[in-house]
Amino acid sequence: MKKKNIDGSILTLWIMIAVVLIAMAILKPGTFYKMTNLRSMIFQFPEYGIMALGMMLAMISGGIDLSLVGIANLSGIVAAKIMIGMGGEPVSIAIGIMAALAVGAVCGCFNGFMIGYLKVPAMLVTLCGLQLYTGIGLGITTGPALTGLPDSYKYFANGSIGQIPVVLFIFIAVVAVIYFIMNFTVYGQQVRFMGSNDEAARYSGINNLKVTIMTYMISGILGSISGVLITSHFNSAKADYGSSYTLLTLLIVVLGGIHPDGGRGNVGGVVLSILLLQLVAQAFNILQIDPTGNMKTFVYGALLIIVLCANVLKGKKKKAKK
C-alpha cells in the first residue's frame, strides 16, 4: 500500500532522527555513539514499542486501545503467579508465558466484543478495561510486587546474544509478524477497510464484528508480550508498572503517521517513531537535562500536540491547493 502522504510523514521522521543523531554527534560524540549506550537504548524500547504496535492496530481499525498497560500488567502477574507456583522450573516459564499470551487474548476479545457487538465506544471500553484488568491484577497480587521469579526468566529482557540484546530479536520478530499481517493477509486489508468506512466495509461483505474482535485480540496479545518483557525486566510483577506507556504509545502511533480517524498508517512509520522517541529520551539522559524524567513527559506532550497541529495544517494546505 504505497501512498504519497505516508511517505511524506516517513520522510519527516527520517529527518528528525537525523537531526537528533547529528546534534548528539556534535554535543556528546563520545558517550552517545558508544556500544554501551546503544545497548542500553535497545534494552529499553521493545517494551513499549511492542505495545505501540497494538495501539497502532486499534487505531487503524478506527478505535483506540487504552487498556494495553492493564493487559500487560495482568498478563505479567498471571505469568509470575504460575512460575512462582510451579517452583520456577524451566517448563513453568513456558507455561507462564503461554498463560500470559492467553490472558492478553482473552482481555482483547472482551474489548473487541464490547466494541463490536455492544457498540460501546472503543475509548470508553478500553478505559474501563484498563481499570478492570488493573483491578484484577491488584486483586491477585494484593498490592505489592510479586517477586522470586526464576532467574532464567530475566534473560528475555536482560540477556544478550554476543553484544546484541535478546529483546531486539523479539522486537524484530514481532514487527515482522505484524508487518506481514498488515500487508499480506486478508485481515490486514479488511481492518484498514473497516477503519476507513465501517458501513462500506459491511456492505462489501466484511464481517466487522470478527475483524474488531480480531484486532483487539492481537492488540491484547501484543500487550501481554510487552507484559512478559516488563516483568522480566523488573524481575517482578506488579499492577501498576509502566503507567506512563499509554501516553507514550499514543504519541508513537500519531507521530508514526497513524490517522486518529482510522484506516491510514503503516508499520514502518510506527517503528521509526519508536526509534526517534528512544533517541530523544536517551539524548536527554546523556545531556543530563532531565534527571527526574519529567521534562520528557513535557516534551512528549508538546510533541504530540505539535505533530497533530502540523498534520492538520498540512491537510488544510493540500485542500486549498485543490
Binding site: 486518529p260 480517524d261 519529567n294 513527559t297
Partner: peptide
C-alpha cells in the same frame, strides 16, 4: 479541530511534565 481525547491527553502530559520539571 484535533480529536479531543488525544489533544487533551497531550495537554495533560505537557502540564504534568512541565510543572514537575
Amino acid at each position: 479541530k484535533l480529536p479531543p481525547l488525544i489533544a487533551t491527553l497531550g495537554v495533560s502530559s505537557l502540564i504534568n511534565g512541565g510543572m514537575l520539571a
